[in-house]
Design a protein around this nucleic acid. Sequence first.
DNA 1: AATCCATATATAATCGTTTATATAACCCTC
DNA 2: GAGGGTTATATAAACGATTATATATGGATT
Lengths: 336, 336
Amino acid sequence: MVTMKDVAKHAGVSTYTVSNVINNLSYIKKETKEKVLEAIKELNYKPNYAGQLLRTKDNRNISVSLPLLTGSRTGNAFFNQILLALYVELNKNNYNLVLSFSDNNPQTDILNFSKYNNNMIAGMICTFTLADIDFLNNLNYPIIALDHKPEEFACDYISTDNKQITQQAVQYLITSGYTKIGYIGANYSSEYQSNHFERLQGYLDALEKNHLPQKAEYIHSINLGLNDDVAEGYRAAECICKTGVNAVVIDNAYSAIGFYKYVKKAKLRIPEDVALIAFDDYEWQEISDPPLSVIRQPTAEIGQKAVELLLSRIDNPDKEYEHIILPSSLIIRDSV
Amino acid sequence: MVTMKDVAKHAGVSTYTVSNVINNLSYIKKETKEKVLEAIKELNYKPNYAGQLLRTKDNRNISVSLPLLTGSRTGNAFFNQILLALYVELNKNNYNLVLSFSDNNPQTDILNFSKYNNNMIAGMICTFTLADIDFLNNLNYPIIALDHKPEEFACDYISTDNKQITQQAVQYLITSGYTKIGYIGANYSSEYQSNHFERLQGYLDALEKNHLPQKAEYIHSINLGLNDDVAEGYRAAECICKTGVNAVVIDNAYSAIGFYKYVKKAKLRIPEDVALIAFDDYEWQEISDPPLSVIRQPTAEIGQKAVELLLSRIDNPDKEYEHIILPSSLIIRDSV
DNA sequence: AATCCATATATAATCGTTTATATAACCCTC
DNA sequence: GAGGGTTATATAAACGATTATATATGGATT
């Protein structure tokens, strides 16, 4: 390995000079500079990251931990969009993105958190599912929670208006004349997923506000993000369609694919027999049969704000925690 | 910051002892070990990554650079699947995944390559588009090329049987009675994308083998992965459907979405008016109208083998370059 | 009791940078 | 030609770990 010392010797100067040439610091005589640059080229010198980091402590690694491929063979595009936004914003600020996959299993989170608990990263952005406060408080980097609100652990978080937009979607169905409205959502016994819990609340609130009965059989909970969300959607459709619902809100677009598959098999029609609105917005929804109505969350903004939160936290570790809630929007197509 | 020295002092031992306790090396007396562990806990000591890396040189960072979100607002699920496979395999081998996004722009590649050219990573896996050999040869980490074969730069690469599977798809169409077969594919003037070039060759070969004429107007090239692949597919459909083709192979599933959109607008029927086979295999294709026939590439295996290639290259830098070609498969649904 | 050996720990060098401090060389001024 | 101020560079001390080498201790052997 070629070191700065080698470059210095080859150029007949000290490492001080080499370092200053590389980092463009103090004024170095033009000819000295040229000698150094030539030595660097000749020896194909590359700086040593570990040496630099040890000395400067300028850590520019951020870990991102997302459930990017849970529940679907081809990945969760919602989180892919967020990942892009995170990357763009981190890159803009000269940070590297160290990626981890989470899978809604707290054990995995423990491994992911521990893996980087050695001053390798300057902070983490994640959708965490873990509630062990002692463990979390012993980590030596700041954490930004994304997509849902961690109940007990104090940290910055960014999320969307899950409750309100679900209420709005149900209200749209009611206004359109549907009265027997079902809901298919993640098993909210999982205390780590406040977003899914809030969606259910939005559904219930809308019914209540419109004096519609809340029927237990109209609500079907699925194991979201654990096995196969499409298959879960199929099974859920099978159950819920037999209860006589004429409209359904689904917490997740992959399960909506399963719903479509069941509907096709059962020779039901969307929206004539059952109307449908799902969370998250992808291109294929325009060519599904019929095109699917969805709730779009502002993924680009989520990613951007998450990075902003983290960088400002790194900059000022003791400032008060921030909670950002971004608005989603309802996109109506032919499934309603 | 709490250092090993602090721990040593607090426990009344030397850093040698602390280091050995942490790394479970030489035998340390039980009580000494306990003292050290307690000091670590009490001071909440975390090892310093830079110090460790500088001393041990055991670099466990691998950079992955993929066009994860090019050409589609919601991401390219093909590469997401590969990303998962890469992560799983890297994780299994105790490597961290440092992520970069490429975008089919050589300038972006130069930035991505340079960013890590400071001994921060032990190697890179990427779908590169760059042909500057001098630049590439000056990087100080090994590169595994994924998805296509770099023409001039000598390195390991892994890809799929693009030519053969495309030929097979066209053969299927011919055998099914289609004779006027079109092809929509990436603008293969881009010399960096051998995979797209090979697909076109497979298409042409199949025609030739069956003594069918190769008509220029049956071939439509699109700017894949640069702007909006769906919109490109729509425009391509518009053109190619007017030439009288009765079947089309599309080099990419997102453009197939655009194709469907055009077909719907033009009130054409698939497959009665035009049959369709596209590359890459996603869940939504089962509920598109009609379900889409596709070519499935073995993404999990691609990712796994890519990591294998890289780790064995790191292990043995001077071994001969390997080229792996994996077989794809044809999945026939109702669009044919 | 001297020697040897094994065990348990300490000392100090090292990894490759950056940077505080020192110094050498030059020019200016009186 | 001594003192003072620049300018350009060198020296050496960090940063926080690992580890080759040294040393102290205690028991076994002679």
